[in-house]
């Protein structure tokens, strides 16, 4: 997880990890979640759903931090997060 600057209480910080649940058939491919996921965890899938929309999917290299912004933003109630665990935050400075 990238930080603007290293928090002083870094070792006490625990960063949540979330499971992303995508109701593929309910999605209408609006792209809000992909655009506004702060960790860029989502990308439009190549597989379209029954209605021909491309739902999001989790980018394998990315980790969801369960901020639930996608869940609150989704106009079709097609994505939600369940918090999996909380892990120590490690600083990966300057990574992309």
């Amino acid at each position: 997880m990238k930080f603007w600057r290293t928090p002083l209480d870094l070792e006490k910080q625990l960063v949540p990890r979330g499971d992303v649940h995508i109701l593929r058939e309910r999605c209408k491919g609006c792209g809000f979640c992909v655009e506004y996921c702060p960790e860029k965890v989502l990308a439009l899938s190549k597989l379209y759903n029954k209605k021909g929309y491309y739902p999001p999917e989790v980018v394998p290299s990315k980790e969801c931090v369960a901020c639930k912004f996608c869940e609150l933003l989704c106009p079709d109630f097609a994505i939600f997060i369940t918090e999996k665990e909380r892990v120590a935050a490690e600083v990966n400075r300057g990574e992309g």
């Binding site: 499971d19 649940h21 995508i22 109701l23 593929r24 058939e25 899938s45 597989l47 999917e57 989790v58 394998p60 869940e71 109630f77 097609a78 939600f80 369940t82």
Partner: peptide, 15 residues
């Protein structure tokens, strides 16, 4: 799609 839990089984919190 590597998805451990089938989304449809779990209810969306808004439901």
């Amino acid at each position: 799609l590597a998805e451990p839990i089938r989304a449809e089984d779990l209810p969306h919190p808004m439901e």
